[in-house]
Design a binder for these strands. Sequence first.
DNA 1: CTTCCTTATGACACTTTGTCGCTTCATAAA
DNA 2: TTTATGAAGCGACAAAGTGTCATAAGGAAG
Lengths: 199, 199
Amino acid sequence: MPSRTFFNLKEEKRNRIEKALIHEFSKGSFEQASITNIIEEAKIPRGSFYQYFEDKKDAIKYVIEKFIVMDYEKMYQSLVDSNGDIFEASLKIYDYRTNETILNFDIELAKNILEELRKNNINVFENKDVLKTKKSLIEFINKEELNLVTDDDLFYFIRIITAITRSVTMEVLSERLTKEDGRKMLEKELEIMKNGMKK
Amino acid sequence: MPSRTFFNLKEEKRNRIEKALIHEFSKGSFEQASITNIIEEAKIPRGSFYQYFEDKKDAIKYVIEKFIVMDYEKMYQSLVDSNGDIFEASLKIYDYRTNETILNFDIELAKNILEELRKNNINVFENKDVLKTKKSLIEFINKEELNLVTDDDLFYFIRIITAITRSVTMEVLSERLTKEDGRKMLEKELEIMKNGMKK
DNA sequence: CTTCCTTATGACACTTTGTCGCTTCATAAA
DNA sequence: TTTATGAAGCGACAAAGTGTCATAAGGAAG
């Protein structure tokens, strides 16, 4: 976590640093991000950076935390907007994640952060800020239409849909697929998931 | 690609270098791997390394290529051993990838390489060495039991199964799940995919 | 023996992260 | 007004890493 010093900073300065962080972490992977670039852009001396953040990891963590909270809110909203239909919600989540700008976050940042989350196996739902405001997504899922045989089927459904949605999303963010093709594929894949693969 | 010089090397020396590469790339991500460690272990001077490989990326590419070819062979074998049942093959692939040693490759290396492949969006099937010997995996798939409506349904089936298998595999390799729990989950998830999610 | 090409080698230039000790500044106490 | 105190500012520097380059060594052929 950033030091108290950082949070005590005048808003203008803190914003300048935040902006530089987001900018730099948008440009590439965690390893590629350069502290030198960050401090130059934010116009702070090297020593200050290390007074605010323990190290580079601490700095990206700060950005990730902000992103996670926003991401959860969006997921939650997607489900509510879809009246609890997890298939439709999945498409909505895909849409916003592959959109040019995700609130204040650039799509490039989204890509790198989603990557980082995956790499470090960070689960959005386990984030403490999310837990604090968690309205339990699961409650909002409409179970009427779902073929739930055992109690934990819903858990597996979510796992599967998450894996598929994430897989396509990453392909699009890495520019291996166009946004449109990715969406068509996701639609098709969700359709298959509804009906099953076996005769 | 490594230089001709590298391939002209006496076998003993080449093996020593290969071993050092695998050892170092097993220890962590691409960025964490240190050329200094590699040359110290392989007992070659710094300049030689750069005579054999363009740069660090070139070196890991070499290791990845070897891995990919072996991985494809294993996948192909899994499908044949399963008599064309893609669900069963998926479990077999999971098993071998989460196994202590994957042929000569350490499980840690597998993890880092699979990670690297994902990060750089490298598709095993697009590898030229694989393409060369590709006997078209798809031909071996038993379509009898599959609910194929349109022509490209099979393509989507493979995408979905791949996404899910990979997802669980990575969870296990990152030690978020035990191998056993991961397998149970995969079994369950494959079962769900057979039957579909919708009432 | 000389020539020519391939391979070997480690010092060096450059970059990057993170540390450390000193300076400056604001504010409260004397 | 002066002094004390702690928060914040600051950049030189150590340490570690990557990639380059000029030069040495090897060896085959004429």
